[in-house]
Amino acid sequence: MSKSKMSNWGLGLAAAAVALTLSNSAFAFDTSADKSAPKVSGIGMNITDAAIKPWNISYFYDGTNLPDGSGTVSAGEKIYSAQCAMCHGDFGEGAHGYPKMVGDPVDQFEASAKAGVDAVSNRGLNNNWGNAPTLMDMIHRAMPFYAPGTLTTDEAYSVTCYVMNLASIPGVGDDFVCDKTSLPKIKMPAEPLYVTNSGPDTDNTRCMKDCYKGTEFVVEKAASIGDVSVGKVQKKDSQ
C-alpha cells in the first residue's frame, strides 16, 4: 500500500488514482479478521493435517484425540513400581516433596476448604482432578519426570489405569481396562467441583481520608519460620 501511494505521490498527478488505490486497500483491510493484521505472503510452508498427526499429542478432557491402544491396572502396577513410586510414593502418598496421587477423600477436601484449614497440601487425583483423559494426557506427555514422553501408548494407558485404581476412583476396579472409550466415561470425584471464574470478585474503593477508626491488627512473621532472605547476606559474609 505504501509503495503505490508513494509512487503516485511522486508523479504529482492522477489524484483520482491515489484515492482509488487507498480505498481499495481500506476495503481489503475491512474484510480481514483483524484490522491490524497485515497480509503476508511467501513466508512459511503449507502442511497437511496428516503430516501434523504424529505431532498432535493432545488429548482433550472429553477424550477427543485419545490414541488407539489400551492398558490394564496390573500392567500399570509394574510400571508404577519401577518408574513412578520413587517420587509419588508406593501408595501414591508422594515422596521427597513430589505430588501425591492420593489425597484426602473429596468430601474431606471440601470440608477443609470450607473450614479454612489447609486443603491444598492434601490434593490428589481423588479430590483435584476433573477428567480421566487429562490424566492420560499428562502422564503420556510429561511423565516419568526424568524421561518425559518415553512411555508407549499402552504403558501410558496402563499406568493411568493403575494410579486411578490407587486413588480409589469409582469404577476403576482391579480388572478395569483403560482405552479411548473407557476413559471418557469415568466420573472423577472432583469433577462437579470445577467452576469457571466470572471476573473480578473484590470491590475495594479509593478512600483517601480517615478510612477506618480504631487500631489495625498487625501480624508479623511467626518466629518459628526460618529466614530465607539469605542470598545477598551469604555473599557479604563470604567476601
Binding site: 476448604a113 494426557d137 469457571t196
Partner: peptide, 26 residues
C-alpha cells in the same frame, strides 16, 4: 472447546472457601 489440561486442572486453579475449584482465572 478448551482442552482442560493438567495445568488447568491441578496447578492454575483456586480452591475457594465454598469448596469449589475455580478455573480460568486468567
Amino acid at each position: 472447546k478448551p482442552l482442560v489440561t493438567y495445568q488447568e486442572t491441578k496447578h492454575y486453579i483456586e480452591v475457594l472457601p465454598n469448596g469449589l475449584i475455580r478455573q480460568y482465572d486468567l
